[in-house]
């Protein structure tokens, strides 16, 4: 993935420490152990605690049990390989790349429920794109929450990218419209639209989001090229409902899994894949704009078995 290469380089150093912990945690659970009922139970507990959900856990455990009973799987190492393969197969590399417009501005719409970290995630994507020498325009379409416009404005100042904003309490679709016009006249490479947090079960707010999407489609051909749903890694099974509703409203093309720098495993994206099929594209791993990396299924599955609250992840 070309776009994020430099970003990857930056986080790799920080992650090296983290990865050690992943593997260390893994080792203690699976590697070098003989497969037996106790290990399977332990595996089940780990899977549940990573939020992958009961259904997905049962599916994965069933696979292990079958292989165990037939004698084709006898060690923890094999279980690990099996799980890695299973999960890697869910997210093929080509699905995880950011989609760009063939000509004219690329429009990326960012949405999610309240408090998942949309604005910070927008800043992170903007920062990475800017580092790729792309011109970025931010659209502050969260006209509802107090201070939200100002929050994005501060980010634009810090990152040195342009921003289009509306009045607090104004019509977000109108801001999106203005932002599209500005993106065309200023000839920017990428327009990043930040939207207000909304609960996915609020029908009227979801319609408003659809309207924002439709406005961009009318102004710019093929827009939005990417609709990123920001999910909070600490969210449990409700994230599946979120993915469903947002996909219904705006055809989500990718997930930005935020707040993966805590102890939460974000395993619910596995369940989301099973039920909605939306790929995870990025993970957020800190507060700073450079704390973003492309989603890596292998690192992710390894982290799922990590011991709780490792110091290295602080």
């Amino acid at each position: 993935m070309k776009l994020f290469k430099s970003a990857i380089a930056k986080v790799k150093k920080g992650l090296a420490k983290t990865r050690d912990t992943f593997v260390g945690g893994l080792r203690s659970i699976l590697i070098g152990r003989r497969l037996d009922d106790e290990l399977i139970n332990e595996l089940e507990a780990r899977l549940i605690q990573s939020d992958v959900g009961v259904k997905t856990t049962l599916r994965l455990i069933e696979g292990v049990k079958k292989a165990y009973r037939s004698g084709t799987m006898t060690t923890g190492d094999e279980v690990l390989e099996y799980l890695k393969d299973e999960l890697k197969a869910l997210w093929p590399a080509q699905d995880r790349e950011l989609r760009f417009a063939t000509s004219g501005p690329t429009v990326i719409l960012v949405a999610g429920v309240n408090g998942v970290g949309k604005t910070t995630s927008v800043a992170k994507i903007a920062s990475a794109l800017r580092d790729q020498n792309k011109t970025v325009l931010l659209a502050a379409c969260d006209t509802f929450r107090a201070g939200a416009v100002r929050q994005l404005e501060i980010w634009s100042e810090r990152l040195g990218v342009q921003v289009v904003k509306g009045q607090e309490g104004g019509d977000p679709a109108a801001v999106a419209f203005d932002a599209c016009e500005a993106a065309i006249t200023r000839n920017v490479d990428v327009l990043l639209i930040d939207t207000a947090g909304r609960l996915h079960n609020e029908a009227s707010l979801m319609r408003q989001l659809t309207k924002i999407r439709d406005v961009t489609t009318r102004k710019i051909e093929g827009a939005p090229h990417e609709v990123l749903l920001v999910l909070d890694a600490t969210t449990g099974q409700n994230a599946v409902n979120q993915a469903k509703s947002f996909t219904e409203a705006t055809d989500v093309t990718g997930i930005f899994l935020a707040k993966l720098d805590g102890t939460a495993k974000g395993g619910v994206v596995v369940a989301i894949h099973d039920e909605v099929g939306v790929p995870v594209k990025f993970v957020g791993i800190g507060e700073r704009p450079e704390d973003v990396e492309p989603f890596d299924p292998v690192a992710f599955v390894e982290a799922m078995f990590e011991d709780e609250a490792p110091a290295a992840r602080g």
Binding site: I48, D232, T234, T235, G236, N238, A264, K265, E308
Partner: peptide, 15 residues
């Protein structure tokens, strides 16, 4: 606490 929190609620609440 966000009512939608998953299994990790145990870690953050405890800390």
């Amino acid at each position: 606490v966000d009512a939608m929190t998953g299994q990790d609620a145990v870690n953050s609440a405890k800390a």
